[in-house]
Amino acid sequence: EDNEIVITDGMEGNIVHHPPCYTQLESRLRLICDFANTHHTGENETIFIHPIIKGIILHFMMGYEHPFADGNGRTARALFYWFMLKSKYDYFEYISISKLLKEAPVQYGKSFLYSEVDNNDVTYFIYYQVDIIRRAIDELLNYLQIKSREFEEITTLLHGSSIGDKLNFIQKDIIKKAIKHPGRSFIANEVAVDYDISANTARKYLNELSQSKALVSYKNGRTTMYIAPENLYDILRR
């Protein structure tokens, strides 16, 4: 309930942004909500704003208002993600812009500052965020390519083994993790959560892997643990 919240440059303590007066905060946040929930599809005489651009603008608006003593950046990015998912851009669930923004906090801050000093021309911020999104998508695609190659390698290895044709996708993925992390332990409840299956089904899959010597099972109290053997790669090549 005061105007003490300011943004500094983080180095010399110079103030680079004064958020709007706190007495206007409630009405200004209501305007953000109204903007977020107004359709901008270009239909019925409405203006068209591309959903990604609108999400970026919402990100900027919340950052500009800076209503909290802490967590404003997280809130602004959460608002962006919310709008992307609301607009059916479901793949944003797997895209991390926060990681890239945190890697270059100075550039992130400047994208706000350049917009503000140029009469709140949000173009600067939009350009920067679009570039961040593009890079985040590239990182996701690279990650998927790596995981795809890893799975193909495991599939090729299993194809020549005696158990390869007996395994389903989940069991093959468990073996991939086991090869990558010898000594790793698996339990039915964790596998059930990871693959969205029942605990009984997870236990069945793990028992089958244990019977095939791909995992080693032992009792830890009332829980059955399944351990990735050190020589799993050699076992599968037999």
Results as ranks from 00 to 15, higher is better:
43 E>V: 08
81 Y>S: 11
40 H>G: 01
207 N>C: 04
153 E>R: 08
89 Y>I: 03
118 D>S: 13
206 L>Q: 04
126 I>D: 09
132 I>R: 06
217 S>E: 14
151 F>K: 12
151 F>Q: 14
111 S>Q: 06
103 E>Y: 01
32 I>V: 14
217 S>Q: 12
189 N>I: 07
181 H>E: 14
106 V>E: 15
132 I>D: 11
10 G>S: 07
28 R>C: 07
54 K>Y: 05
18 H>G: 00
5 I>K: 10
15 I>E: 14
8 T>D: 04
46 T>V: 02
139 E>H: 08
16 V>M: 11
71 G>Q: 06
58 L>C: 10
220 N>V: 08
151 F>T: 07
207 N>G: 11
14 N>D: 12
124 Y>I: 05
35 F>E: 08
210 S>Y: 09
32 I>T: 01
126 I>K: 05
192 A>C: 02
115 S>Q: 06
220 N>F: 05
217 S>T: 04
20 P>W: 01
137 I>V: 15
22 Y>V: 10
171 Q>E: 15
154 I>A: 07
196 D>F: 12
165 D>W: 06
154 I>H: 03
13 G>S: 09
111 S>Y: 06
76 A>C: 06
76 A>T: 08
78 A>Y: 08
118 D>F: 01
204 K>S: 11
210 S>F: 05
8 T>L: 04
25 L>W: 02
40 H>V: 00
35 F>H: 05
64 Y>T: 03
128 Y>I: 03
98 S>H: 01
145 Q>V: 08
179 I>S: 03
12 E>S: 12
204 K>L: 13
224 T>S: 12
5 I>P: 02
198 S>P: 00
133 I>E: 06
71 G>M: 08
2 D>L: 07
47 I>A: 13
167 L>K: 02
199 A>C: 01
106 V>C: 00
201 T>H: 05
66 H>A: 04
41 T>P: 00
135 R>Q: 15
135 R>C: 07
211 Q>E: 15
192 A>F: 03
198 S>H: 02
99 K>R: 13
134 R>N: 15
79 L>C: 07
20 P>R: 01
105 P>E: 10
104 A>Y: 10
167 L>Y: 03
205 Y>V: 00
216 V>M: 07
122 V>N: 02
47 I>S: 12
185 S>Q: 14
180 K>G: 02
112 F>C: 02
193 V>H: 08
158 L>K: 04
187 I>Q: 12
138 D>P: 13
37 N>L: 13
85 L>Y: 04
133 I>C: 10
182 P>S: 09
124 Y>A: 08
126 I>N: 07
200 N>D: 14
80 F>W: 07
